[in-house]
Structures are given as structure tokens and as C-alpha cells.
């Protein structure tokens, strides 16, 4: 049994399950980043951190 599973991959249903999981995760991330309340403001502030080096004395 193990030999068969490892040598071949006949379980095509598993690829559908994997696809649904990956798509679900991807859509969740999209929701989290773009649709959640307050996201836009937070990331607008966060992206500016690359430009600041602290105040030079």
C-alpha cells in the first residue's frame, strides 16, 4: 500500500481538496488585507517605515 502511494499518485480527489485549501487560504488573505476595517490606514502607515531612518541630530 505504502509503496503504491509513494510510487504513484492516483488519488485525483486529493488534488481538488488541496486546490480548495490553497484557494481558501488565498481568499482569506485577500479579505484580511483589503477588506477588513482599518486595514488601509494601517498599511499606509506601515509602508512609510522604509523611508524613515530616525531624526538626524
Amino acid at each position: 500500500m505504502k509503496k503504491e502511494v509513494l510510487a504513484n499518485f492516483p488519488y485525483t480527489d486529493l488534488t481538488v481538496v488541496a486546490f480548495v485549501i490553497f484557494l481558501g487560504l488565498f481568499l482569506s488573505v485577500i479579505y484580511w488585507l483589503f477588506l477588513r476595517k482599518g486595514s488601509a490606514k494601517f498599511y499606509e502607515e506601515a509602508q512609510l517605515s522604509s523611508l524613515s531612518e530616525g531624526e538626524k541630530l
Binding site: 488565498f26 488573505v29 485577500i30 488585507l33 483589503f34 486595514s39 498599511y43 499606509e44 506601515a46 509602508q47 512609510l48 522604509s50 523611508l51
Partner: peptide
Amino acid sequence: YYFVPKAVNRPVYSYRLSII
């Protein structure tokens, strides 16, 4: 993600895209 914004002196086009 660090040097391009620094070189053009503006933030990255989409920070949220960078997370994805």
C-alpha cells in the same frame, strides 16, 4: 522593497500586495 522606495523617495506601490 527597501532600496526601490528609498531610491525614488516614495513608498512601495502596494504594501498589501507585498504581504501576499
